[in-house]
């Protein structure tokens, strides 16, 4: 049997392309997943200065806190002013340990205290997505903090007292949906950052759980989400929670507003119905 090489060549090159196609497909799904994680994490809420019409993810949003004023940094892929030169390890270390590629500690205004619970896969997908965003060559603004808080080494002490790194641990006694909800609330969604009270050092009072914070961001009182709080929220049912996270409407026909309004815009309204139900199931289990 004679083989016609003229026909063989295209067949062979097609066969060679299959792994390349698979790679491209994998990259595409990583981007899609990364975009979803980007919404879950609410990255744009802080890193895009929407108030002053800043470029997406170029930072510069002013965050007033009892400890001083923070300015969110540029996280576009610009190699000089953004995070374009970061390796995967750099990114994972920043997100899960709160340490920059240069080894400097980050202030916990950046909620690595929650992001530390994120899975490697989610973090890598997020990086894939961020790397594809438009770079902006704009330097990040220095934080405006009083002494000694402007000394980064102080943060080492703070972290030793207030921060525990480590990925999310599945609770074997609970179903998958509950665990998914717990992962989002305590990890990428970083809900605990506002709904859990803080100690005198500004660290999360994790023993108190999500019992609310009277001195939340921008002086707002953030309600507790545990049934033992006997708050309005404790009477909400699963569908009340999912509906309010989608539209902002509370069961009584009134509307959530302020910071939570932005969280709904940037994060929860973009979640899948399954994730909203998972969050609701987890929150309802808290007492």
């Amino acid at each position: 049997m004679s083989i016609n090489t003229r026909h063989l060549l295209p067949v062979c090159s097609l066969l060679l392309m299959i792994p390349a196609l698979a790679d491209a497909q994998e990259e595409q799904s990583s981007v899609t997943r990364g975009e979803y994680i980007y919404h879950l994490g609410g990255c744009a809420s802080c890193h895009t200065n929407g108030k002053e019409g800043g470029a997406p993810l170029a930072g510069g949003l002013e965050m007033e806190t009892p400890f001083g004023t923070f300015y969110t940094p540029n996280i576009t892929p610009d190699p000089q002013y953004g995070i374009g030169n970061w390796s995967e390890d750099d990114f994972i270390r920043a997100m899960t340990e709160g340490v920059s590629p240069e080894g400097e500690h980050y202030y916990p205004a950046f909620p690595y205290t929650s992001y530390t619970k994120m899975s490697q896969q989610d973090l890598l997908d997020l990086k894939t997505f961020l790397d594809l965003q438009a770079p902006v060559a704009k330097p990040s603004k220095e934080h405006d903090l009083p002494f000694p808080l402007n000394q980064r080494f102080v943060l080492g002490v703070w972290k030793w007292l207030n921060f525990e790194s480590g990925s999310f641990q599945i609770n074997q006694h609970r179903n998958d949906r509950w665990n998914r909800g717990a992962y989002i609330v305590n990890g990428p969604g970083h809900c605990v950052e506002c709904h859990t009270p803080r100690n005198i050092m500004g660290g999360l009072d994790t023993d108190a759980g999500m019992t609310g914070n009277d001195n939340g961001p921008e002086g707002e009182a953030v309600p507790g989400l545990q049934s033992s709080n006997h708050s309005e929220f404790s009477k909400w049912e699963i569908e009340d929670i999912t509906f309010s996270l989608e539209t902002g409407m509370k069961p009584d026909g009134d509307f959530l507003g302020g910071s939570m309004g932005h969280v709904i815009d940037n994060t929860t309204s973009k979640m899948t119905p399954a994730d909203l139900e998972a969050i609701a199931e987890y929150l309802k289990s808290l007492n």
Binding site: D214, H230, E246, G248, F255, L256, G257, G258, H262, D265
Partner: peptide
């Protein structure tokens, strides 16, 4: 109805500061 809700929410997010919830 969801479109209407989102429109309501828009003003509540930007122009209203909820007073502390009474327990």
């Amino acid at each position: 109805f969801i479109s209407l809700s989102k429109s309501c929410k828009s003003c509540h997010t930007d122009y209203r500061k909820k007073k502390k919830e009474k327990h």
